[in-house]
Nucleic acid binder design. Structure first.
Lengths: 342, 342
DNA sequence: TCAAAATTCTAAATCGTTTTAGGATTTTAT
DNA sequence: ATAAAATCCTAAAACGATTTAGAATTTTGA
């Protein structure tokens, strides 16, 4: 910046009044303090003239709040999280808050570093989709009752606010749908790390559905796809299934990345979905509407998730006393896009 | 927060030294100022013990820089921009910067308000995909040589740093591709507001390609789809084309939203792409790989765009003197996904 | 032995706000 | 006329860091 910024002092000096006066006027506390209308106008005119904009850093320092909230997710370019970010952005905006967005790449250490960094930046609250396995470090970082809401995923033994969906039930319904379509052996493609609560719960849902309906199950039906090599692994697994000419004719993809990889692999190997192999995905994303035939998916109520998360967060931010932790569990909805035919 | 935060003063007091000393140690300026190793260790130990983290607001105020950059786009949930955001986030992270992301919804006023807000927050620089029609307000806002880079779109008569792609040529190649496939009458679906430079340039490219190859053209071939009613409008236009049984058998969608709407409409109306109507899109997004048959699209070199933008921005941030404005124009690449058949 | 040099540390100003605790001055009431 | 009340305004501290300019002490050198 070449030009010197104009401060409250400049306004005060050039008007021959105190900065207290200027501050009061600017913050609409003039009436309360009996500042005359005439002086008020003078201040506003000068503010206009010099194009004064308060320095939010200084204000934040003084007030001890930054009007910023931090959003930590595994990858902001994942449509599930970018949609979420947008929703949260809008809600925060309404309250005069801005969003600092950070991606962790599922890296536990990076996540912890980011939380520390955001705390150092004095963000007023945190919304986190965490990849942690244990709760120790998080507990240590948040023990000072730092306003925070955990979203999407649960961490074992972490006492915190949560907004999640009923992953077990969502998965159950998805698998049940396949069963009702007549599929018997259903493969589940989980993404590693499977310690993540969402994935684990979905696996439970899958297992329960298979068991309840007395469908065959063996270990080879549940495969774990490594996070860093999704595409190749999925292709390999699909090929296995396709070549085996076994009765496995349906795949339950445990998140959108896996489902996308399935679609790609199918395309490359000329496997027709759902004619050759049926596919149901957890997480609904725009692309699944567009693929033809489009993909049936478990939809998470994104707007509701964000509403709750933001509401809880702001409640904590405003009431600085220790509040009881909340855990909101929302229901998913199975979006059936095409009745799969055997 | 229940607990009082620990400040540099707490460290100093509990150690019986000055805060200058503590500050110097913490900022690795101890050697330069001849602080003894013993004292340094004492400071670090106490920092550890009290779990001291510097208050970045205070530091920023003093230093006059926030280590934050603002990213303004029309909608962060648009995959084009969320991918971009992720890329910029990573590059910024490496330099110790964080990202505040804001969506404008193509709203001119909102964009200006956001810029003011971000300046008030003392962000060190701005990366903007702007929706402005005129340059006046932007010029006023940035006249103090505020570090900024305009990305994706150009604003008439705005003297600023730009990183864009050659939209005209990209569009030309896309349309040429359709022509080479044997299509004669090619419709172009533009999204309003068409004053946006990207859209306008793409229209020029379309027109030139049609003209160069002496294909028929009339006004009805270029249709403007209103931003706030994409889906219905696209459906209507596609129906027109389909019903008319005219020779219009190809659509050039001028951005990803339009292309997505085309796919949806086609699906609903059982129009086969590309057998009934061929489709080429500007902007390549993941979904286009997955649709079957997948969609040919003009790909923008996202990584390169971000690299340049961030590089230019940091150059401006570090060299506070008035620098010559740069305009980087990158080339697009036509990703041919399936040879359209007549 | 004593001034100069080296070593190790610190007081205070500063960044730009908000807020507390009152200080002047004028008006009102008796 | 004067105390009380009302009106309008301000000085200074505080938020938590960095940095300038120099102070206090010890060491060195002749």
């Amino acid at each position: 910046m070449t030009k010197k910024k104009v401060s409250i002092d400049d306004i005060a000096k050039s008007l021959g009044v105190s900065k207290t006066l200027v501050s009061l006027v600017i913050n609409s506390k003039a009436e309360k303090h009996g500042i005359s209308k005439i002086t008020q106008k003078k201040v506003w005119d000068k503010v206009e003239e010099l194009n004064y904009k308060p320095n939010m850093m200084a204000r934040s320092l003084r007030l001890g709040k930054s009007n910023t909230i931090g959003l930590i997710v595994s990858d902001i370019s994942n449509p599930f999280y970018s949609k979420m970010a947008r929703q949260i952005e809008d809600l925060a905006q309404k309250k005069g808050y801005n969003l600092i967005i950070c991606s962790t790449d599922e890296n536990i250490e990076k996540e912890l570093t980011l939380i520390k960094m955001l705390k150092g930046r004095q963000v007023d609250g945190l919304i986190i989709s965490s990849s942690q396995k244990k709760s120790e470090e998080l507990n240590a970082l948040l023990k000072d009752n730092y306003p925070s809401v955990f979203i999407d995923r649960c961490i074992p033994r972490l006492k915190a606010n949560y907004v999640t969906v009923d992953n077990t039930r969502g998965a159950y319904e998805a698998v049940e749908h396949l069963i009702q379509q007549g599929y018997d052996k259903i493969a589940a493609f989980a993404i590693s790390p499977i310690h993540v609560s969402t994935i684990n719960d979905r696996i439970q849902g899958y297992l329960r559905a298979v068991k309840d309906h007395e469908k065959t199950y063996n270990n080879s039906l549940l495969v774990e796809i490594p996070f860093n090599n999704i595409k190749a692994s999925v292709k390999k697994e699909m090929k296995k299934i396709h070549d085996a000419k076994e009765s496995v004719r349906a795949i339950f993809a445990l998140n959108n990345h896996i489902a996308i990889a399935c679609l790609e692999a199918a395309q490359e190997m000329k496997i027709r979905i759902p004619d050759d192999i049926a596919l149901v995905s957890f997480d609904d994303i725009d692309a699944f509407r567009l693929t033809s035939p489009s993909v049936t998916a478990v939809m998470q109520p994104l707007d509701e998730i964000c509403d709750h998360a933001v509401k809880i967060l702001f409640h904590e931010i405003t009431n600085k006393t220790e509040l009881e932790k909340k855990h909101i569990v929302l229901q998913t909805r199975l979006v059936i896009r095409r009745s799969s035919v055997l």
